[in-house]
């Protein structure tokens, strides 16, 4: 066997070990979610349930509160992601097309603020939202999501705008189009994949957010799924592990599926951002 062949064997050996580590939690979660209560106590011996059941999902999904949590999660993440992208577009356009002094500073500043823990800024924001009467309102969460997602969105959109030939804009400008028109009619339509990547990434980030909705929304009925499963876990005993597993699976799946389906686009946007940044 040649050296390259041995290398292939080593490659797969490494990947199998790592794949086992990364796949185990998913596999186990699915296994638990398909078990009957009595099979929970059989551990790994019943990794493949003898009589797989969808009863756990039925129990979870038949609870109207659970559907509301999912809807809240979707609503808050999508509106927050949309806000982040909308706020980012003008700044990303300026950083891509207008050579001004301090442009590097703006981009670096956006990188730096991403390092501030949401926990730090949430302390004052909680008090302000309270004073403004925005506590327990979706608007407060959406606004914070917009602010948290904007820096990443500016970076991704700048890279996307950079890839559009400037000649197209010059032609439009000769025809008398204003810069706003150029942005709306030429730049934005041409950078749809970049905009979509930024929107989906910020949305997935928001879907995972726990702290902000947990603190800003006190009413059970306003919670997104990430907060609801934490609360649910507190009330779970060994006899309802299969229900928690099903709930976790339902909470995790939307983000994973969206990401897996669109990963080619998203990963290439991230890689472009990493390289050009």
């Amino acid at each position: 066997m040649s050296a390259a062949r041995w290398g292939d064997v080593a490659t797969y050996a490494a990947l199998i070990v790592l794949a086992a580590f990364f796949a185990l939690p998913f596999a186990w979660l699915i296994s638990l979610a398909l078990r009957t209560p009595s099979e929970i106590y059989l551990g790994a011996a019943r990794f493949i349930p003898e009589a797989p059941t969808l009863a756990n999902f039925k129990t979870i999904m038949s609870d109207p509160a659970f559907l509301i949590y999912l809807w809240n999660g979707l609503k808050l993440s999508a509106l927050g992601g949309g806000l982040a992208v909308a706020l980012a577009i003008p700044a990303a356009y300026a950083c891509s097309r207008l050579p001004f002094r301090g442009r590097g500073g703006v981009m670096l500043g956006l990188l730096v603020v991403q390092m501030i823990s949401p926990l730090v800024i949430l302390l004052p924001l909680y008090r302000w939202m309270d004073a403004l009467g925005l506590l327990n309102r979706d608007l407060s969460v959406i606004a914070v999501y917009g602010a948290l997602g904007m820096p990443l969105a500016v970076w991704l959109l700048k890279v996307a705008f950079d890839a559009i030939p400037v000649e197209l804009e010059e032609v439009a400008q000769i025809d008398g189009a204003s810069r706003a028109t150029i942005l709306l009619r030429i730049v934005l339509p041409l950078s749809r994949p970049g905009i979509a990547s930024a929107f989906i990434l910020t949305m997935v980030m928001n879907w995972s957010q726990f702290l902000i909705p947990f603190i800003l929304l006190e009413r059970d009925a306003d919670w997104p799924i990430s907060v609801a499963i934490f609360n649910f876990a507190g009330s779970v005993s060994a006899s309802t592990t299969q229900l928690l597993a099903a709930a976790c699976l339902v909470a995790v799946m939307p983000a994973v599926v969206v990401f897996v389906v669109l990963q080619r686009m998203i990963v290439s946007a991230l890689i472009a951002g990493a390289v050009k940044g």
Binding site: F22, W207, A233, L244, V252
Partner: peptide, 20 residues
């Protein structure tokens, strides 16, 4: 597979590993 683990919400991550 590796990316899928990345997008799991932090809270769910803690709960899933709690079961493991």
């Amino acid at each position: 597979l590796v990316l899928a683990a990345w997008v799991v919400p932090g809270i769910a991550n803690g709960l899933i590993w709690g079961m493991l």
